[in-house]
Design a protein around this nucleic acid. Sequence first.
RNA 1: GCCGCGUUGGUCAAGAGGUUAAGACGCCUCCCUUUCACGGAGGAAUCACGGGUUCGAGUCCCGUACGUGGUACCA
Length: 517
Amino acid sequence: MPSSYLCNMSKKVRVRFAPSPTGGLHLGGVRTVLFNYLFARQHDGDFIVRIEDTDQNRFVKGAEAYIFECLQWCGLNPDESVLQGGPYAPYRQSERKEIYRQYAEQLVKDGRAYYAFDTPAELERMRDLLKTKGSSSLQYDHHVRMNMNNSLRLLPEETQQLLDAGTPYVVRIKINPDEFVPFTDMIRGEISFDTNAVDDKVLLKADGMPTYHLAVVVDDFLMKITHAFRGEEWLPSAPVHILLWQYLFGLENMPQWAHLPLILKPDGNGKLSKRDGDRLGFPVYAMDWADPVTKEITKGFKEIGFLPEAFINLLAVLGWNDGTEQEIFSMEELIAKFNIEKVHKGGAKFDFEKAKWFNHEWIKKLDVSHYAERVKNIFESKGITIADDAYLKKVMELVKERCTLLPDFFTQGNFFFQAPATVDTTSIQPKWDEKKNMFFVELIKSWQLSTLWNSGELEISFKELAAANQLKTGELMLPLRLMLVGGKFGPGVFEIASAIGKESTIKRIEYTLALLQ
RNA sequence: GCCGCGUUGGUCAAGAGGUUAAGACGCCUCCCUUUCACGGAGGAAUCACGGGUUCGAGUCCCGUACGUGGUACCA
């Protein structure tokens, strides 16, 4: 059964992600991109990234390039953007400034918007007055606009005079009272707003830049966007956008809306913020973000050792699932199975433990050759240079089911490359005796002569020697592990001995033997 | 305050009037493994509350509570 939102199949699906370059790329932002991307791909549509940089005060240098790096890491590459261009360029709103003005003027001409000359101080005075009157609304709307300094109240000549004199002004939309603005949200169904609760939003700012409200509508039209997915925080301003569509381009050309649920903090309620991540010890941004002013670095999922596959996977199932028990999805599966109508309405608390579980699952099925370089770098940062790639891959294969995050390859595998820095003998020291000592002395002699150095042979000779000495194998396995690994963890001991080689094995046994004397 | 949206175990969630209310994470027990992990078996724990509608409500309706978002010349 074709879904209702696809009834007009004559139009090619086009979606967009429209971030503001103001800082790190938040989990919620990535999920918004992901849902857009998935929808575009499954409908053979286009995925556009448009930079919404209309607020010069909040612009942060480097943030735009950073966003694209994050998208690339996630594998969410746009079809059109400031990077590769496209038929609807420019894709940066600051470069489209003049386009928006035309539409603002058009709205004024049509009587759907007006010039407002109120200064910030005057606006403040208006709100203070409203407050003292006990008004339930502090909005600039039909209740107050005829008392304000705008082209609705002023005579046309007066307005023209102010305009000619270069008086700073904004353009505000004129919202009619007592109207209903209904629309269909792909996730929430029918939603209706009462215009009495919406204010005369500023469309064009005094600096000539559009606000989000004007820019999003104009650009979505010009760029032929068919489906607009954005965060739930935009729901309250949806009526403004819908009215703008109605006034400017016609409702029949308006994209289908979907307002995505928020990602909430793990404890308590509320939107997940960077602060929560810092406080609870997990990242909130996709990649490390270095604030250009404070130089402060905020950790990203990539840098703490998440796989992009896992990151995408965990984000996809935060607020969405396909109705089956499946939890592990590759990008291809997501493209095939994602359904925007099955996205939850309510926000989801972020659970870092579960996030790590996804990473663990993906590391278990990881193609080691794909990540050998990355792991090699981790080892190098810890002072271990790896020359033998084949050996590294073998080690990775041996320990990967024990790794949750990429750096775990170091903690789980460093003893394959160097003798353990410390050997914790506390658990064997009390029961250590001369008999055991002699066993290992003999074991060294025996292994020294061994020509077949593989785990099977090693295990057999070990057990035979134990039997000959009337010792239980079980009492000797842990000491051997401690000698080779330094702690109670890791793959099978004989596998380890086999991998690190005869010389290292014997050296490590001798070292701990001396320690135990 | 006003407007909107939401609410199934601790968390993510399945669920479209009739189910012993799936499954996953985390936690606990056991098995496997002479380590850890993986794997396997099991356990504790839930429909926010109150009214309706109905033979029957987690599912539909209305209230209430709680939460959350918005209420900027920010997006």
